[in-house]
Every structure is written in structure tokens, then in C-alpha cells.
Amino acid sequence: MEQLEYLFSTLLTKHVFMLFGTLAVLGAGAMIFSKNAVHSVIGFLLAMLSIAGAYLCLRAEFLAMAQILVYAGGIVVLFLFVVMLVEMTKYKERKIFQTQTPLALVVVLISAVTFLGVFLKTIFGKSAEAALTLKPELTADGFNAATHNVQAVSRGLFAEYLLPFEILSVILLVALVGAVVLAKSERG
């Protein structure tokens, strides 16, 4: 634990975060530009695992584990199943991009440049130079959000934000029933 604390407090974290971020961006790029849908899913998996590593650098251990469980364990496998189910017959696509691709890329580039222009001072200016310092104040029942991550998150989830959590469970139930109804074959 002592070594872990030391690792998180050193400058090394910055570079590890940048490494994970670059990997995530590379995975996302591979996801959109690969011809084979299975390769796209693998790029997506790389991006999700890298984002979990980035969460770890930001001291959100519980969320990093949840990210790996939900995305790498659940969603990616689901995507792979559907790719195998749907894509195998027409395995190679000759034309992977829409007809509107040049226009869409121009629009995305223009909005990206606009965003960067607006937020350039905020992201790269003096005000952003201060590191992400953890404030010393404690969350509910005295649990610090960084040193007792799971306890603090559970206090937030089950005490302060109980109503959104319950609404989320209803949404999940509705989604479950909806998925079953949609995927059911019509004859059955």
C-alpha cells in the first residue's frame, strides 16, 4: 500500500496516463478505420481497457474494475457474438464508408478546430497548469474519495444518490424486457 501511494503521488502517473490515453486513441482509430468488423471490436476492446487504466491513474479503482468487468467482460463479448451472427456471410465489406464521408469529416474537423479555439485558453492556458490535486475535505461519513475509494463510492451511490440508482435499475429491467421482445423470432 505504501508503494502504491508513492507511485500515485509521483510524476510518473502523468506519463502512464498519457500512455493509456494514446493507446485509447489508437484503439479508437483502429476501430473506425478497419475493414473487418472483428478487428473493429478488438480496437474497441483496446480502447476500453486503456480507459480503465486511465481511471486507475485518476485514483478511481472501483470504476476501473467496473469498466473492465462491464466493457471487456460483457459488452465486447456481446458485440463479438452479434458480429459473428450477422457479418460472417458478408465477411469483407468493399465499401466501408458512407457517401457523405468527405463532408462529414470536414464538419467534424471544423467543429474540432472551433472547440479547440474556444477552449484553448482553458485547456492549455495558465489556469490549467495546476495538477489535479485531491481536496482534503472528506465525503460522507469521513471516507476520503481517494484513499477509501470503494467505501466513498458506495456511500455516494447508496446514500446520496439512491433515487437515480433505483431509476437506473428500472431502466435496466425495461431494457432487458425490450431486448428479449426485439430479438425474439416472429414465428415463436
Binding site: A24, V25, A54, V108
Partner: peptide
Amino acid sequence: MVPMNQVLLISFLLFSIGVA
């Protein structure tokens, strides 16, 4: 310590790739 601008930059890039 991770500076805020790195996080914002990475998240901005990921979002742009998603939109594209």
C-alpha cells in the same frame, strides 16, 4: 499527478473519433 489539460485533451480526442 495528472494535469487536467491532459485528461481533457484525451477525452476530447476520443469524443471526436466517436462522432466521426
